[in-house]
């Protein structure tokens, strides 16, 4: 079999490996942490503004 046939198989294999790694880690993460923690992210703030500005009511 030609080198390029091997490379084709290697590409298929690596693609499956990367996909499986993400899928397994995803399931493991979702089962290890509560949804409240995972989705607790809120918008960031700029430190310069956080230091210098106050919210005006």
């Amino acid at each position: 079999m030609d080198l390029w046939n091997w490379l084709e198989y290697a590409a298929w294999g690596l693609s499956v490996a990367f996909g499986l790694h993400m899928a397994i880690d995803w399931l493991k993460t979702d089962s290890s942490y509560s949804e409240d923690v995972l989705t607790s992210s809120r918008e960031g703030e700029l430190e310069a503004m956080a230091e210098e500005h106050k919210v005006k009511s």
Binding site: V37, S40, S41, R42, G44, E45
Partner: peptide, 12 residues
């Protein structure tokens, strides 16, 4: 760690 109760946020 971000503001407003963020427990897990994107990393700066």
């Amino acid at each position: 760690m971000g503001p407003h109760g963020t427990k897990v946020g994107l990393l700066r």
